[in-house]
Amino acid sequence: EEEKYTVIYPYTARDQDEMNLERGAVVEVIQKNLEGWWKIRYQGKEGWAPASYLKKNSG
């Protein structure tokens, strides 16, 4: 089951394993960790993003 989330704040990656996020983008969360960083898939790429910048899509 894919978990789709919408980006609610833009984010600029500060590290090579982080993802740039555009507000309104829909991403797939593939791994959650306890530090508040989630691994996401977006446009065929995978990387880490701050969970607080993502909002779960309803339905």
Results as ranks from 00 to 15, higher is better:
Asn57Lys: 09
Tyr42Met: 06
Lys55Met: 02
Glu18Ser: 12
Glu35Leu: 10
Gly36Trp: 05
Gln43Met: 09
Glu35Gly: 11
Asn57Met: 08
Asn20Pro: 07
Thr12Cys: 11
Trp38Gly: 02
Glu3His: 12
Ile40Met: 01
Glu22Phe: 06
Trp38Cys: 03
Glu35Phe: 07
Glu18Arg: 05
Gly47Met: 04
Arg23Gln: 15
Glu46Phe: 08
Trp48Lys: 13
Gly44His: 04
Glu35Lys: 15
Gly24Lys: 03
Ala51Val: 06
Met19Ala: 10
Lys32Ile: 02
Gly44Ala: 04
Trp38Leu: 01
Val27Cys: 06
Val27Leu: 02
Arg23Pro: 13
Ala13Met: 03
Gln43Asp: 12
Tyr53Met: 07
Glu35Gln: 15
Ala51Arg: 13
Glu46Thr: 05
Asn57Cys: 10
Tyr9Gly: 15
Glu18Pro: 06
Lys45Ala: 13
Val26Met: 14
Arg14Lys: 13
Leu34Trp: 03
Glu46Tyr: 07
Asn57Gln: 13
Asp17Ala: 12
Lys56Arg: 07
Ala13Gln: 07
Trp37Val: 15
Glu46Ser: 07
Ala51Tyr: 04
Thr12His: 12
Asn20Phe: 07
Asn20Ile: 08
Glu22Cys: 10
Glu18Lys: 10
Glu22Gln: 07
Arg14Ser: 12
Glu46Gln: 14
Val7Asn: 01
Ala49Arg: 01
Asn20Ser: 08
Ala49His: 01
Asn33Thr: 12
Glu2Cys: 03
Glu28Trp: 04
Val26Glu: 11
Val29Tyr: 01
Asn57Val: 10
Tyr5Asp: 01
Lys32Pro: 04
Tyr53Pro: 01
Asn33Arg: 12
Val27Gln: 00
Ile30Ala: 07
Glu3Gly: 05
Pro50Met: 02
Glu2Leu: 08
Tyr5Phe: 14
Gln43Lys: 04
Ile40Thr: 02
Trp48Ser: 05
Ile30Asp: 02
Pro10Ala: 15
Glu1Tyr: 04
Val27Phe: 00
Pro50Thr: 01
Ser58Lys: 06
Gly47Asp: 01
Gly36Thr: 07
Glu1Gln: 00
Arg41Ile: 11
Ser58Met: 09
Ser58Asn: 06
Tyr9Phe: 13
Leu54Glu: 00
Leu21Gln: 00
Val27Gly: 00
Glu22Pro: 11
Val26Cys: 06
Gly44Tyr: 05
Arg14Asp: 10
Trp37Ile: 04
Glu2Gln: 05
Asn33Phe: 04
Arg23Ser: 09
Gly24Leu: 02
Glu35Ile: 12
Pro10Tyr: 02
Lys55Asp: 14
Leu34Ser: 15
Arg23Asn: 12
Glu2Met: 15
Gly44Gln: 07
Val7Gly: 00
Lys56Met: 13
Glu1Thr: 05
Leu21Met: 07
Glu28Ile: 07
Ala51His: 09
Gln43Pro: 00
Pro10Asp: 11
Val29Pro: 02
Glu28His: 09
Gln31Lys: 05
Arg41Leu: 05
Arg14Phe: 03
Pro10Phe: 01
Lys56Glu: 10
Gln16Asp: 12
Leu54Met: 06
